[in-house]
């Protein structure tokens, strides 16, 4: 194999002709956009689902909501992410008669998908908060919702921040499938470089290294956050 030749071609396309710029400014940005916004949607929706899951179930409404949430989580955990992307982009939107860009579709689907996973993480987080916190809020005359929002959920989020960091890393890696609906992420921008000369060896090798570095950096961030949380736990 002509490594030197392959490298020369890649160098020319990636550095001299500015391929890196598209990788960073479009690929990386979109990958981060999908993962970050997806996680944010996931946290908001996932928290709602988790709140329903831990609600006392004496009344009918919580029981119905609980069933809906169970079906929701079951669907998103039980089907491949690629299938969810394809169905949404090529089936659901046309049926609804809406046009939504592939990037926005990716953000929405990643958000809905991660909500299913975050809800399980968050449920654990909510259950990890001592029941006395809710009791104290209720005894003061605060409603269930207010106590949840102001007291229980903030403590739950603090407890699960490291796990959410790992969910973020998982999302970053999963974004590599959005080219199935023609969204342009990191993976796609490297494929494009390969497409110029039908020469994929170096672009994909570089891509793998890029992902490893990206995930490594984010893990370092998550670990640093974990450390500072542990420290703040000790100091108070």
């Amino acid at each position: 194999m002509d490594f030197a030749g392959k490298f020369k071609v890649f160098w020319e396309l990636f550095i001299e002709r500015g391929g890196w710029e598209r990788v960073l400014k479009v690929g990386l940005v979109n990958t981060l956009l999908i993962a970050v916004l997806g996680l944010l949607i996931g946290i908001v929706l996932g928290t709602l689902i988790a709140a329903v899951k831990v609600m006392p179930k004496y009344k009918l409404l919580p029981r119905i909501l609980d069933k809906i949430c169970t079906v929701y989580v079951g669907f998103f955990r039980g089907t491949p992410l690629v299938v969810q992307l394809l169905i949404t982009y090529y089936v659901l939107w046309p049926l609804m008669g809406v046009t939504i860009t592939s990037l926005n579709t990716s953000i929405i689907v990643f958000g809905l998908n991660s909500a299913a996973y975050v809800s399980e993480i968050m449920r654990g987080g909510l259950l990890s908060v001592d029941g006395g916190q809710m009791e104290a809020g209720r005894a003061l005359g605060l409603s269930y919702g207010t106590t949840m929002l102001k007291i229980v959920i903030p403590q739950a989020i603090k407890n699960i921040l490291p796990t959410l960091g790992n969910e973020f890393i998982a999302l970053i890696k999963d974004t590599s499938v959005v080219s199935f609906i023609a969204a342009i992420d990191l993976t796609k921008t490297f494929t494009e470089i390969g497409n110029v000369r039908y020469e994929y060896f170096m672009p994909y090798l570089a891509m793998a290294v890029f992902y490893i570095i990206l995930v490594f950096l984010i893990s370092c961030g998550v670990k640093a956050m974990e450390r500072s949380l542990r420290k703040s736990d000790r100091s108070h």
Partner: peptide, 17 residues
């Protein structure tokens, strides 16, 4: 009504956050 009935717990239950 609970606004007019204070409660103090064995385990204090101060809001940790």
């Amino acid at each position: 009504h609970r606004q007019n009935i204070g409660m103090v717990f064995q385990q204090f239950n101060l809001f940790n956050n």
